[in-house]
Design a protein around this nucleic acid. Structure first.
Lengths: 222, 222
DNA sequence: ACAGTATCGATACCTTTTTATCGATACCAT
DNA sequence: ATGGTATCGATAAAAAGGTATCGATACTGT
């Protein structure tokens, strides 16, 4: 096997879906709804009911026929199972537009993330206050900071170098937006996030759809 | 089957990898390198050589033993097969931090995207110039614009409403950053991009790794 | 209480995706 | 030329992930 398909014993795809169930469930919780059926959640998220049930199976949560699943149970199990309950601190390096956007993003709270510090090297950025976080100079980054996760939003050119500094500062997980593949010692977990991929897929889908339409037209309906 | 696994006859996962091969190959091309082996590309992107070869198989590109694949051929085949060569226009709605970050992002060119117009409703944003694009009021959005793709970076609250306006304006593909599931007529292609998922996965991986470490410690090495 | 029904959960099945194997081919060094 | 070797490509096996089926269960209304 190449590398981590699974997270613990849970399929990666399931974990990803957990991440989208969670906000939906939190909304329900807030609205006072205490139970939800796999079918209704599936419809909400454009999935299949059976897939939702199977996913929940991994959590060990069991529903009740005719009623559904307890919203609280589901949230609890997801948060506990994936440590989205304990708020883990993260730091962010690179306060360009993307970095700033992430510092201002409100959705991370669902997954227990709080960005506690931000770093940059540009003199005109150091000292700025972004969404309550003061930008510090990269040189200020100290190994004793207790964040274990870092968000890397620097330029591709400096990606590798900054990543190594992060590792030296005790970071064990890097969320990499730079588009460069980072070469780091084994135990570091790197999550690559190439924003352009989503677009590329959309564009490819549109092309495929357009082609299908043309083909469908050339041969008259059966 | 639920819905689109495949794009044309190419697996979705393969298309995603294409999107990351492409910049790497373009770099090589720029550096004058004309051939590349599946093994070296795989190492560069942390994949398996065989997977790279299989992906290339979908393109109909054939390599040569002992040498590898022609970089130009690969680039050409990917761009042509997925229409990343023809530049397609897109519009962006919602010029908050994320929208601004995307307007400033330089990686879209690899996939043939040009953001031609930006819209918002906030009076203090309308009229601003972001990376050469003038922000217009949403009401200015006209059905006759020839962009078929839209990037949706508005607040979750207004997501559905704005999406409907986009469809009425002739948009057929929406790249949805709002985190809300959009309910739209069938032929519209929606690509959901929940930025928090990447983080959630990273956090879950770190947790899993930590647990593994603990388990490995409790039972001494075999 | 009882029938009717919505919903779950276990099992089995099927599809998609990844990985392994291995013969064939083209380059390189001698 | 010839042998050695890196690399490909076809085929097949394995793994992962998704879907269907269907009996079991608990709520609802009479």
């Amino acid at each position: 096997m190449a590398y981590g398909y699974k997270i613990g014993s849970i399929p990666l795809t399931t974990v990803q879906r957990f991440a989208s169930y969670l906000p939906a469930l939190r909304d329900m919780q807030r609205q006072g709804r205490s139970v939800v059926s796999s079918a209704s959640l599936a419809e909400m998220l454009r999935l299949e009911a059976i897939q939702v049930r199977k996913d929940f199976g991994y959590l060990g949560i069991t529903g009740r026929p005719k009623t559904g699943f307890q919203v609280d149970d589901l949230i609890g199990a997801m948060e506990h199972g994936l440590s989205w309950n304990r708020v883990s601190d993260a730091i962010l390096v690179g306060t360009g537009h993307l970095g700033t956007a992430l510092l201002n993003y409100r959705g991370f709270g669902y997954h227990g993330l709080a960005i506690k510090a931000a770093f940059d090297i540009a003199p005109d950025r150091v000292g700025a206050l972004i969404n309550g976080v003061q930008v510090q100079h990269l040189d200020e980054m100290k190994p004793f900071m207790d964040a274990k996760m870092a968000i890397l939003t620097v330029s591709p050119e400096s990606a590798q170098e900054v990543a190594l500094r992060l590792v030296r500062a005790g970071i064990t997980g890097i969320w990499n937006f730079t588009g460069r593949t980072l070469l780091l010692p084994e135990p570091i977990v790197v999550q690559d996030q190439d924003i352009a991929i989503g677009l590329a897929v959309l564009s490819a889908k549109l092309t495929a759809r357009a082609r299908e339409a043309i083909e469908a037209e050339s041969k008259p309906p059966a």
